[in-house]
């Protein structure tokens, strides 16, 4: 057994620096019975093998699950100031222009499209929003002349907004040629 720890020392130039991995505990003591004692009388191998198969399986399943749920296009940014209302009977969001109302400012797909100040007390049309949506509709029709226009617009409005503002934006979108107006909500109870 002693040979196991000392073999080929003469032939190995690095032997004094790098030792073969193995048992180190008390191996400087050149007494066989001490080594035997330390190594548990040769009862079991000290080379423990960690079984990684289950771990890799778990990681693979996690990766596959995350990959299937991964959706690069479904991420629609909602401004921090807007708290969406909650609804249970909601559908999935589709690809459509998004009109968001951030305070008094109206944005169409992130581009400024007028102020909603004029409609805070009285139902009316937001002219800049109307123009922005109309341009979008015309662009869509030029790009796809043979397809029927879906006329869907998604409104991203804070849950505390007054109904008159919501109705004004709704009406403006409808007049601009988007009769199918959807409200963005958070799904849940």
């Amino acid at each position: 057994m002693a040979d196991r720890y000392q073999n080929n020392r003469e032939h190995n130039p690095h032997a004094h620096v790098i030792h073969k991995p193995g048992r180190r505990l008390m191996h400087k003591i050149p007494l066989r019975f001490v080594w035997r004692k330390v190594h548990g009388m040769g009862a079991r191998s000290p080379n423990a093998n960690l079984n990684l198969t289950a771990y890799i399986d778990f990681l693979l399943v996690t990766v596959i699950f995350l990959l299937t749920t991964f959706n690069a296009s479904g991420q629609i940014s909602v401004p921090k100031e807007i708290t969406l209302p909650t609804a249970e009977n909601a559908e999935d969001v589709i690809d459509a222009p998004i009109v968001s109302l951030d305070g008094n400012q109206v944005f169409v797909d992130g581009q400024y499209a007028g102020s909603a100040k004029s409609v805070e007390d009285r139902l009316g049309r937001i002219d800049e929003l109307f123009a922005a949506l109309k341009t979008r509709r015309e662009n869509w029709k030029t790009l796809q002349p043979n397809k029927p226009f879906p006329g869907v617009v998604i409104l991203q409005i804070d849950q505390e907004t007054k109904a008159v503002v919501v109705k004004s934006v709704f009406q403006t979108a409808a007049y601009a040629g988007y009769p199918n107006v959807s409200f963005m909500v958070t799904k849940g109870k």
Binding site: L66, V78, A90, N180, M184, K187
Partner: peptide, 24 residues
């Protein structure tokens, strides 16, 4: 695998928005 898991966890979208339909 660990890096992929970390990346996907960070980029995952947990809160999905929905829409409620109306017609003018």
């Amino acid at each position: 695998l660990m890096v992929t898991v970390a990346f996907l966890l960070i980029t995952a979208v947990w809160v999905t928005n929905s829409r409620i339909n109306a017609n003018a």
